[in-house]
Computed example of a mutant assay.
Amino acid sequence: MTSRPATVVEAVDIDVVRQGNLLLDSVSMTVRSGEHWALLGANGAGKSTLLGMLGAVTHPTRGTVEVLGERLGRVDLRDLRTLLGHVNPRHPLRSPLRVHDVVLTGLTNSVEPVPRWVPEPAERARATRLLAMLGMAGKEDARWPTLSQGERGRTLIARALMPRPRLLLLDEPATGLDLAAREQLLTSLDTLRLEHPELATVLVTHHLEELPGSTTHAMLLRAGQCVASGPADEVLTTDRVSKCFDHPVRIARTDGRWTARAERAVPAGRISPPESPPE
């Protein structure tokens, strides 16, 4: 009998209230090892707020959140965050660090290298391997300011993977990418998930076209409430996505990737042609 994958994150009936505003309303979510979740919804739906709970950045107002077996409110969040990989495309680095050194800062959970800290040879080798896996081979000595937005995104994923996290959180990783860079990023994510089968991921986005084909599960959020949650093919349907965004769209999946197109409305006053009489 095959054992069930380990639970990585479990959120139960969480509410988040900030300055009198209800940002999340009775939201529950369970992420297990090897699952790859997408959080979708319009602006203000609560996606980033929920990601903050999963990433041990903030506490819920009500309900419980357990991350890697530790309940928020009973554990030092700073210690817990060192066990997670968090990819923020707005990484605040300003200095011209080499790509290889940026990746190594994932071990110290810092933006800049820690003074007098010297990585082990095995750690340097791991950084090189991760960059190669993510399509950045030969870029180890490139300086951060010279990178394209897509190259920065893949570098930050490598950085997040350095401490060998069980959970990787991606906050709109395709933000600002052109078509080619977006496709390179999504291909890298598919490769990553194939080579690290135990890794769980949660990706936030507004756009179905930004989901890798390896996405296994999805949650739709609207105004802080869960519209649907579960296996991706059951959640990312025309009816449910239309309800989530309060706009009629048609969802299709081709070669493993999703697309969304607005339904064409019939102009007012136009009369559909009569049906042909049966023969």
Rank of each mutant, 00 (worst) to 15 (best):
K47W: 08
L220P: 00
D101F: 11
P115N: 11
R78A: 11
R240W: 12
L68M: 04
P278Q: 10
V241S: 04
P115I: 04
V102Y: 02
L189I: 14
V118W: 06
S188V: 11
P165Y: 08
L83H: 08
E183Q: 12
A137R: 15
K139D: 02
T58L: 07
I271H: 13
P60Q: 05
Q19Y: 15
L131G: 02
P267E: 08
S48P: 10
L97K: 03
L220Q: 05
K243Q: 15
E172M: 08
E112F: 13
P248H: 15
I157W: 11
L169M: 02
R261F: 05
G106Y: 03
N109M: 15
L93Y: 11
G46M: 02
D246M: 13
L40D: 05
V102E: 01
A232N: 01
L179N: 08
L211M: 14
V31I: 13
R253W: 02
T105I: 06
G69Q: 05
L194P: 08
L170T: 03
S95E: 12
R264D: 09
P119H: 07
T254D: 13
R240H: 11
V204R: 03
H100N: 08
S148A: 08
L167D: 00
P267H: 07
E112C: 10
M1N: 09
D255Y: 07
L192P: 03
L236D: 00
R250L: 06
T216A: 14
L161S: 02
T128M: 11
L39S: 01
A132E: 13
G106E: 02
G69F: 03
T175W: 06
A38M: 13
E279C: 06
